[in-house]
Design a binder for these strands. Structure first.
Length: 582
DNA sequence: GCCGTTTTCGGCCCGACTGTTTTCAGTCG
C-alpha cells in the first residue's frame, strides 16, 4: 500500500475540519485543520515520510495531535475521528454547507429538524415552503437557497479564472480608469495583484477627484456586461467574459489602508493583525487604531501601513503568510531582493516547426532578440512525442546543423541547439546518449504515462535528473492551473537529486503551467538548485506574453536574480550547464 | 488544535451584510 501523497493528506485534514465544524467544534479548531491542510499541500517534502519519523510538527500549523492523525492516515489509511464523524453526518450535508448563504450551523439545523441530508432534499423542502417553519428561516431564505441551487445544481464551487485571462480583462479596465480625468490613483488589488495562479474575481481600488464621475465611467466601459450595485463609494459589476469586478473609490487618506486590506491574502492579513494586536494596534481597511491613544492612523500608502506596525514594505507576491512578516522586521533584513522581468537574459525552452511550433528557427530567434534576450535554446520535442510532431534522431542531427547555421547568420542573439527530451516511464530518454552529447542543451520532461504511483514517478524523474546529458528538468510537476493536478511526485527527492547533480529545475512560464509552482521553486532555491525560467514558446509572440508569469512565479517563490541561471550573461550561463561542468 | 518580545493556559483579525430579529447570530470576504 503506497503512502498517501501530500495532496491526499491535505484533503483528509480539510475534510476532517469540515466535519468538526458540522459537529459544532469551536471555529479556531476548525481553522487549525484548514491551516494545517494548506501547510501540508504546500510542503515540498513527503509529509507521510515526515510523519513516520514523528517530524510532521516541523510544518507550520501542525502540532502533536495532527502529527498523530496524519500518522494514523499513513499507517492505517484512515483517521478514526473521520470514520466516526462520517457516520454521524451524511456526505450531502457537507455539500449543503458549500452553498452560498448556508453555513454549518444552518445546514445542521435543517438536518436535525427536517432530516434534510442532500441537495435534492433541500430543493424539495424549499419548494414545499417547509423551511420557513424553522427559527431563523423565512421566505427569503427559501428563495435564496433555491437561487443558489439554480446557480450550482451539483453544489460545485465557482471556478477560478487562470491569471492571464483575468489580467486580460483587468489590465485594460485599470488602464481606462487611469486615463479618466476624474481618477487619481487606480490599482488592481486581490489575488491578481499578488500574481496568484488564478483569481475568483477582480478588485480595483481607486481615489478620485470626482468619485461619481469615475464610477459612472467604470460601469459604462465596453467590457462591463451588468452592474449589481453602484454609488459614489464604488460599484460591483460583471464583464462579458463572466468575471466579477469590484471597484472601490476611497478618500486619498485611506488609500493605503484599503489597498493593503484588499490585496490580502486573507492569511497574510490575519497574521498581520494578530501580531499588531500584541502591540496594542488594531488594523482594518480604515486605518490602524492605537489602544494607547484611541487614535486611528490613516495611511495614504501601503508603506505607511507596514511602517505603522514596525515592518518594512512587503511586495504583494510575498503576502501569503509564508514567513514574510517575520522577515519584514528590523528594516526588512530577512526579505529577498526579488527578481524582476528585466533580469532575464535568455530563454532555454522554445519550439519550432521542426516539432509542434508555429515559426521557424530564424523567426523564433529574432522574436527572442526583440524581447530583449541575448540567447535562446531551440528545444523541439524528441523522437517519441507522437502526433506526427516528433523529431527522429536523423532529423535532430540536421536540426543541430540548421541551428548552427542560423546562429552564424544572426547578430545579437546566441542560439543553442537543444531538445526537449521525453522521459520514458522507466526513466530512460528517447535519444541515444551519443546524440544527446552533441547538443548544447537538453531539457527532459514527462509527457506520457502520468498515472504512475508516487514512488515510480519519482524514481523515473530522478533517473532523468541523474542522466549525464540532461541539463534541466522541464515543467517538473506536470500540473495545469485549475485544470490538472500534478502527477504524484516526491518533490523533496527531485530537489535533492537536482542539487546533488547540478541539474537545473525549470519554472515553465506558460500561465497555464507555472511549473515549478512557487512554493517548490522556493524550496529548490533554498536547497541550492539553480532555477531556469523558460517560455516554452511555440510561436513568436509568446516570449513577451509569458515572461510576466514566469517572473511572477519566481517572485512568489522568494527568488532573487542570483537564484535564476538565465539571468547570467551568455558565457557565464554556458559554464553553469551540467554538461559544461563534467 | 496551535502557539508564546505578556503566556505551557488563554487567547486565537476585522468589519459588512443579511434576514430575521426587539438586540443578533450566521455567513462572508
Amino acid at each position: 500500500m503506497a503512502d498517501p501523497t501530500n495532496s491526499d493528506i491535505a484533503d483528509a485534514l480539510a475534510e476532517l475540519g469540515d466535519l468538526y465544524e458540522l459537529d459544532g467544534a469551536i471555529i479556531h479548531r476548525v481553522v487549525a485543520y484548514r491551516t494545517a491542510a494548506q501547510s501540508v499541500r504546500d510542503a515540498s517534502t513527503s509529509v507521510a515520510a515526515l510523519a513516520r519519523e514523528g517530524r510532521a510538527t516541523e510544518l507550520a500549523g501542525v502540532g502533536k495531535t495532527l502529527q498523530e492523525k496524519i500518522l494514523a492516515l499513513v499507517e492505517h489509511a484512515e483517521i478514526p475521528a473521520t470514520v466516526k464523524l462520517r457516520a454521524k453526518f451524511p456526505a450531502g450535508l457537507v455539500q449543503m454547507t458549500r452553498l452560498p448563504g448556508l453555513g454549518p450551523k444552518r445546514a445542521r439545523m435543517l438536518y436535525e429538524a427536517l432530516g434534510i441530508d442532500s441537495l435534492d432534499a433541500l430543493r424539495a423542502a424549499a419548494e414545499g415552503e417547509r423551511l420557513r417553519k424553522l427559527k431563523g428561516f423565512g421566505p427569503k431564505a427559501e428563495e435564496n437557497i433555491l437561487a443558489a441551487l439554480e446557480a450550482a445544481p451539483d453544489g460545485e464551487v465557482e471556478r477560478r479564472v487562470v491569471l492571464d485571462r483575468a489580467l486580460a480583462v483587468g489590465d485594460p479596465i485599470v488602464a481606462a480608469l487611469r486615463a479618466h480625468p476624474a481618477s487619481a490613483e487606480v490599482e488592481l488589488a486581490g489575488s491578481a495583484r499578488r500574481m496568484a495562479d488564478s483569481c475568483k474575481d477582480l478588485d480595483i481600488i481607486a481615489t478620485a477627484t470626482d468619485a461619481d464621475a469615475l464610477v459612472e465611467a467604470f460601469v459604462a466601459l465596453p467590457e462591463i456586461e451588468s452592474v449589481a450595485g453602484s454609488g459614489s463609494a464604488g460599484a460591483r459589476a460583471r464583464t462579458h467574459s463572466g468575471i466579477k469586478v469590484d471597484l472601490r473609490v476611497v478618500a486619498p487618506e485611506q488609500f493605503g489602508n484599503l489597498l493593503q486590506h484588499f490585496t490580502g491574502s486573507r492569511a497574510h492579513n490575519m497574521a498581520l493583525r494578530e501580531s499588531a494586536v500584541r502591540r496594542g494596534l488594531h488594523v482594518s481597511e480604515y486605518g490602524v487604531l492605537d489602544d494607547a491613544t484611541g487614535e486611528t492612523l490613516e495611511c495614504t500608502s501601503e508603506e505607511a501601513v507596514y511602517a505603522a506596525l514596525g515592518l518594512a514594505y512587503i511586495e504583494p507576491e510575498l503576502r501569503e503568510n509564508r514567513g514574510e512578516l517575520e522577515a519584514a522586521v528590523d528594516g526588512g533584513a530577512g526579505l529577498p531582493k526579488l527578481i524582476t522581468e528585466r533580469d532575464l537574459r535568455g530563454d532555454l525552452h522554445a519550439h519550432t516547426t521542426a516539432s509542434d511550433g508555429k515559426n521557424s528557427i530564424e523567426e523564433m530567434a529574432l522574436a527572442a532578440r526583440d524581447a530583449g534576450y541575448s540567447y535562446l535554446a531551440m528545444t523541439d520535442h524528441s523522437a517519441s512525442m507522437g502526433f506526427g510532431m516528433d523529431v527522429p534522431p536523423k532529423q535532430l542531427e540536421r536540426q543541430i546543423e540548421l541551428v548552427k547555421d542560423a546562429n552564424e547568420a544572426l547578430d545579437g542573439i546566441e542560439l543553442l541547439a537543444g531538445s526537449e527530451v521525453n522521459i520514458m516511464p522507466d526513466g530512460s530518454l528517447d535519444y541515444p546518449d551519443e546524440l544527446l552529447e552533441r547538443l548544447d542543451w537538453a531539457i527532459a520532461s514527462v509527457h506520457t504515462s502520468f498515472r504512475l504511483g508516487e514512488r515510480e514517478m519519482t524514481d523515473r524523474i530522478v533517473a532523468a535528473i541523474e542522466h549525464p546529458w540532461v541539463d534541466a528538468l522541464g515543467h517538473p510537476t506536470g500540473r495545469k492551473v485549475e485544470a490538472r493536478r500534478p502527477y504524484p511526485l516526491d518533490v523533496g527527492r527531485v530537489i535533492e537529486a537536482a542539487a546533488r547533480t547540478g541539474t537545473m529545475l525549470e519554472i515553465n512560464a506558460n500561465p497555464d503551467r507555472r511549473d515549478l509552482p512557487d512554493v517548490y521553486a522556493r524550496a529548490a532555491a533554498q536547497a541550492g538548485v539553480r532555477i531556469v525560467i523558460n517560455s516554452d514558446a511555440h510561436r513568436v509572440r509568446t516570449f513577451e506574453r509569458v515572461r510576466r508569469y514566469g517572473i511572477a512565479t519566481a517572485r512568489r517563490g522568494w527568488l532573487t536574480k542570483a537564484d535564476v541561471a538565465n539571468t547570467l550573461p551568455y558565457a557565464r550561463f554556458m559554464k553553469l550547464r551540467k554538461r559544461a561542468r563534467r
